[in-house]
Amino acid sequence: MKTCNNCNINIDTPSVKCPICGSILVGKDKDTTYPRVKKKYTTFNRILMFILSVIMIINVYLDLQLTNHITWSKYVVFGCAVFYIIVRSIIRSHRNPMSLLTGYAFLLVVLLLIFFWLTKFYVITNFIIPILCLTELIISVFYALVVKNKYIKKYLSVIVTNMLVSFIPFGLMIFKLTTFNVLVNISYVLSIISFVGLIIFDYDDLKDELSKIFNY
């Protein structure tokens, strides 16, 4: 053991300093009880944030120099912010692929709705959001059929969430935010059909999963 002459005590530590007073310890101790744990630094986040900030600043500067207004650069700023949020959440997330997919699809729908609110660009509500919801629904139903009897129980709540997400285009239609409703109708009808299928074929698992989710 090493000794701290200042505190007058024997210390077993991988450090050369006293943990109490910070003075240099006397003696050597090769066989310490605690290992020296290496630190992990995450500089990626800072590098990413710096690069995106540079891109945004240059774009806004060029936009102001060329047009005297902020025109196209606001879309670049928006795109960079979305890119940063998605990359960061992918790095930080440790969720399974299905719930990750659901999360991002939902996030994308929310961002598209904000974009629609800003631009009133009806292609978003008529086509992009319904196609996104439909794709997500088809992937989850396909996943449910492929992994049946294996991990289906783990993903039931995600599948049900996907079905509910497919009702978003229906909400848009109700609030008259769409002008073309074919894809919207396909989206919520398919969602209802898959929900009925799930109840008929997987009722017990669904009931079990719901009892967990609602904690009863």
Binding site: I9, T13, P14, S15, P19, I20, Y34
Partner: peptide
């Protein structure tokens, strides 16, 4: 430490 002269410390060395 004043209570026990044989006291000792084990630390993680941070």
């Amino acid at each position: 430490i004043e209570l026990d002269k044989d006291a000792f410390i084990i630390s993680n060395g941070v």
